[in-house]
Amino acid sequence: MNIFRLLGDLSHLVAIIILLLKIWKTRSCAGISGKSQILFAIVYTTRYLDLFTTYVSTYNTFMKLVFIMTSIVTIFLMNAKFKATYDHNHDTFRIEFLILPALVLALLINNEFTIIEVLWTFSIYLESVAILPQLFLVSKTGEAESITSHYLFALGSYRGLYLLNWVYRYYAEDHYDLIAIVAGLVQTILYCDFFYLYITKVLKGKKLQLPA
């Protein structure tokens, strides 16, 4: 565990807490893509199947369980409790266009052709693009509440910090995983446009509004 990895995990955790607090406090999931949330739930459940096969550390097990459980709670809040506030009309991204290619790619390019490893690889590929329905929703409505922007910033920062962690591990531990690194790069690049708007607008107290 190095500082980049720890900050990355904390950033991920903060993102999830911000999202749940936003939904709970405002009693609304307006502006949040239920499709991205479904993709994240698929990502965590397929990646953390190794909870049954491998023990890494108490920290690792705890975080995995938190990610799986909070993603399910989020889906429940969006599709049951606060369903009336869910922005169906704008959340129209076709997630099968992300799931199927991620699955095919995982079957073709993986470290080992076993069920658990292919599902792990699938989850890595799917996570790299899972935010697209959310970014699509923001671009369709043309704006995002600042709390949603903070959520996206924390969520985007997490994989960016992991990139630094992988650079560190390459030199310090002779460890690297090309699949995770390439997917992590793609994932972080997808946020770049948002990061730019966040820094130039939201941090200066303005609303995140896309140029017309």
Partner: peptide, 10 residues
């Protein structure tokens, strides 16, 4: 350089 058999990250 090697790839770890088990995934120790999240």
């Amino acid at each position: 350089y090697h790839v770890l058999a088990k995934h120790d990250e999240l």
